[in-house]
Design a protein around this nucleic acid. Structure first.
Lengths: 217, 217
DNA sequence: TTTGTAAACAGGAAAAACCCTATTTGAGAC
DNA sequence: GTCTCAAATAGGGTTTTTCCTGTTTACAAA
């Protein structure tokens, strides 16, 4: 295959080492070559503006500081709908995957993918227009299932305040004082939250709050 | 430079894609070549046992699921003190950096390092025996500064296990069962930790564990 | 005015967490 | 064997948390 016929890629990743390494790997595939690299969405925009050539595929790191994966995909689908975006991430987070797909990413894979699979993914995305690994498909099925459907669960003002205060070393009595409520009311909030969140004790509360960014560490 | 004279490396990283890519990059350096890759500390041990050749340098990802960076460095300094270990990580966490250095890592760098700098680092570590970037040196200076002197407080094996289990919804009795110890012993650990960490209850324990990266969310 | 309903509050009890002060056990030093 | 020291264990008491089942209060709709 001559260089002219190769599919071209751009890599967007803030980890220089990973980006450069990945470039080497991809350039070793005989159907693909890397056109350019960028460190974030902003840099990518500049490259796409300057560059006369537009890549066929963009490999996009989800976890970027400046203009993150989500925003970048959004911008790309609006401004360069022909470019196929493959999102790349270290974390196997169902919500993020679905968010990216909804935004128009044509595929998603984890950084622990095998290089051969990456090559396959690149081929498939050029042929079929998309590539979803088994794991991702599973996520999608899961998301359509209405049971584990994590509706973000909203809390009443007081409940939320209590939840946050419970993530401290205060006793419930002290929390009651701070909130100017009877300890029994606080106990009610606690009970209600335990049921709603299906947890067994205060530690569960803390874990939940942390996982859902309801408190800062 | 002939292949015979090249310095050899091993890469330990659970992200296949990164590992393979990095391999390409390093093999493109004319002084270095990759001897083998492993996905975690356990695999590395096996490789080192089988393999007749021992690498000069090991590039070690800090964030591994099975046998993590910390444990692996520890094992390496004990069993293969001649191998130079360079730790690799995405996070710029001062405490972790220092921990690794104390354990015997000969260098540390973030994954956003420039490939040229990586090459330099490899050269330097073979010449001088160590390599510390400016950023890391700054961390070290910082650590010697006596104000923010968080002596990382070390825990006994069991204490640590308890601490981690305490960050779950298990009762202390259940933890005792899991650890095959008397509930009273667990109570002893709890007491000891409360005093040492100057906290008042189990929530304090969870917060502490999170802040010090003793558990993953 | 009644009625409905959600939030606040209460009683009472069992379980778990918390606290303090010993005693036992096991491994290594002498 | 005895001594030593730390880790493991125990006893037993107090406080807090957890749980279940009510009642009161406030406020709005009918």
């Amino acid at each position: 295959m001559t260089d002219q016929n190769k599919y071209t890629l751009a890599i967007v990743d803030d980890h220089l080492l990973f980006g450069s390494s990945l470039e080497k790997l991809i350039n070793s595939f005989d159907e693909f070559s890397v056109l350019f690299k960028a460190r974030n969405g902003i840099e990518l925009q500049k490259e796409l503006a300057n560059q006369s050539a537009i890549p066929d595929i963009i490999l996009l790191d989800y976890n970027m500081p400046v203009m993150n994966g989500y925003e970048t995909v959004k911008w790309l689908t609006e401004n360069h709908p022909k470019i196929k975006v493959l999102a790349l991430s270290v974390e196997d987070n169902e919500k993020i995957i679905l968010k990216m797909i909804r935004e128009g990413a044509k595929g998603y894979f984890l950084k622990d993918i095998h290089p051969d699979e990456l090559k396959d993914a690149l081929r498939i995305v050029m042929e079929k227009g998309y590539y979803y690994s088994e794991a991702v498909t599973a996520s999608m099925v899961n998301a359509l299932h209405p049971n584990s459907n994590d509706v973000p669960l909203k809390f009443k003002e007081n409940e939320l305040t209590f939840l946050q205060l419970a993530c401290s070393e205060m006793t419930y009595k002290e929390i009651a004082d701070v909130m100017n409520l009877s300890p029994k009311t606080i106990d009610g909030y606690r009970q209600e939250l335990f049921n709603k969140l299906r947890i067994k004790n205060r530690v569960g509360l803390v874990i939940y709050a942390l996982k859902n960014n309801l408190i800062e560490l």
